[in-house]
């Protein structure tokens, strides 16, 4: 494992910790899209179905369990916690699941490398992860006074994707037979989706102003 991959995973983990701290610490999920969180849970479930059949390393197994556990907890808090669920901006979080899930499913069926249930679902998870942030970005545009934790959460998630691209570039040059067109294309698309957000994030940071995305 190279330093970019490890740093990417740590950013991913940190983003989830920041989100959980926000939700449980201030008992509020204001500005957080439940749709994005549920899509991520679906991404992890469909991708990690091989958790007990394809052992890679203790690190991988532990991280998979942590991602499954924490994303389940986030969805649980937002849907069922007596206090936290009251802070969810349901009326604003209107992105349609089907708009993202259906194309991902069709593309997975059309392009899967091997037609086994595990492989098709794994391919589906790659497509879905690329676009799962969209409900969150739309909700951010609609949210007045985005708090720091929410802005940092999305920033850390975007950093994770950017670092994975560096990891792929590194692996491309250091490993033979590392040709991952599907994963690369989806990863680049996913990172491009964050570009607009990054621009306004850095602008607000530079000017020492509160983050706001123009509608």
């Amino acid at each position: 494992m190279n330093v970019f991959r490890l740093a990417g995973d740590m950013m991913h983990l940190l983003s989830i910790v920041v989100l959980l701290l926000k939700i449980t610490g201030i008992k509020s999920c204001r500005g957080i899209s439940l749709k994005t969180q549920e899509l991520y849970l679906l991404v992890f479930i469909t991708r990690y179905l091989d958790i007990f059949t394809n052992f890679v390393s203790l690190y991988n197994t532990v991280m998979k369990l942590v991602f499954l556990g924490t994303s389940s907890a986030i969805v649980y808090y937002m849907r069922y916690d007596r206090i936290i669920k009251l802070t969810y901006d349901k009326e604003q979080d209107t992105f349609k699941y089907l708009l993202l899930v259906a194309p991902s499913a069709v593309l997975a069926l059309a392009t899967s490398h091997v037609y086994t249930v595990l492989e098709v679902l794994w391919t589906f998870s790659i497509y879905l992860e690329a676009v799962a942030i969209m409900p969150q970005l739309v909700l951010l545009q609609r949210t007045q006074n985005i708090d720091n934790l929410t802005g940092n959460y999305v920033f850390l998630l975007g950093s994770y994707r950017g670092l994975y691209i560096l990891n792929w570039i590194y692996r491309f040059f250091t490993e033979k037979h590392y040709r991952q067109w599907l994963v690369w294309t989806c990863g680049v698309v996913q990172t491009i989706i964050y570009c607009d957000f990054f621009y306004y994030y850095f602008l607000s940071w530079q000017n020492n102003e509160k983050l706001a995305l123009p509608a």
Partner: peptide
Amino acid sequence: GSGKASKDEL
């Protein structure tokens, strides 16, 4: 083949 090597990523 395609996909295989990425199975060691998260």
